[in-house]
Design a protein around this nucleic acid. Structure first.
Lengths: 180, 180
DNA sequence: TGGTGTGAAGTGGTTCACAGCA
DNA sequence: TGCTGTGAACCACTTCACACCA
């Protein structure tokens, strides 16, 4: 299988083929008319686009319930990300079973991030500490935050925040489920 | 604090006040001109709207890496959801440490969901089994699925799927981080 | 002929701006 | 006077439709 059509890709992704072609169009011309997209070329182009040519180190902050749960989840690795360290206010009380990532004291965070030049952070601290920790992360040089805490973070324009609120996701579903 | 203005709420939620007013407007008139919204009334109205007047039972399917991680996370409970059971193809090999939810064999799922009239499911099975399990869930009466598996699920119109793909979230960030 | 690339049309959601009411 | 409720204007994204090329 050398090439793939926009409609095949679109079907797999759950979108319309025109959508897919237009989206790719914003970044360049990757396909051949009448043929489709070269799987190989498209793959490297997208990898390049996403800045995923090489591994991205990630830190996780807040190894409480959700945080340590995510540390046990190895799904990030296979997508090219590596959680290089976790930080917690009370690293000694974190249950390390099944966790291979080092869990360090929050005081070591700034130096670690600066030294390793980490740009991505996964934030799992309680809402009341979220902004404070965010400020520290940004100060250390983090420019992308995956925020699992239920709070609206204030960050400079140069920093991107993606929010994942599991309770909100369930509430959302709950709305559609409520009517018989 | 009896009342709250749309702009205060909007600030807290990270949206514009006009947005918030319009959104509420789709469901009715909850505020008083010149005063704002009664905190008490708005709260009950929203609870009603979300179908959260009473507890919602939820099942979790696939207690592998991510699934068992979520079982240890107790964040759902406090938002009015209760994970009443988890199902896995190999329930005996699931590490139960820190998990109070019963982990049952997948064969028991259909009967359980029908008996308990569960409407919401959290799906954490591998992508290759996702569609098959989804069919079973829908057949059993589930109408809302929180899908953590990286796959596009085919479901009837009456069923709502919310997708949460942690790798995609990180990739998304990765794009914005890549440029200095 | 088949499938991309892309202007143009369509659609839905956001923001404005202000009338109207406590 | 202050703040909601809401039509109208605006904007961004989606879909269509077809020219163009391997």
């Amino acid at each position: 299988m050398e090439t793939v059509s926009s409609s095949a890709l679109a079907k797999a992704a759950g979108v319309k083929s025109s959508q897919l072609r237009k989206d790719l169009g914003y970044f360049g011309q990757f396909g051949t008319r009448g043929l489709g997209y070269s799987v190989e070329e498209l793959l490297t182009a997208i990898r390049e686009l996403l800045g995923r040519s090489q591994f991205q180190p990630v830190v996780l902050v807040g190894a409480g319930n959700l945080g340590s749960a995510l540390l046990r989840y190895s799904g990030f690795e296979k997508e090219g990300f590596e959680v290089v360290a976790a930080f917690d206010a009370f690293p000694d009380s974190v249950v390390k079973l099944g966790i291979s990532t080092p869990v360090l004291a929050i005081e070591e965070m700034l130096a670690f991030i600066r030294t390793k030049e980490v740009r991505l952070a996964i934030l799992c601290v309680p809402a009341e500490n979220a902004q404070e920790v965010t400020n520290d992360l940004v100060g250390a040089g983090v420019t992308g935050i995956l925020n699992f805490s239920p709070s609206v973070l204030q960050v400079p324009d140069a920093v991107t925040v993606n929010n994942v609120d599991l309770a909100v996701e369930l509430e959302n579903l709950s709305y559609f489920v409520r009517e018989e």
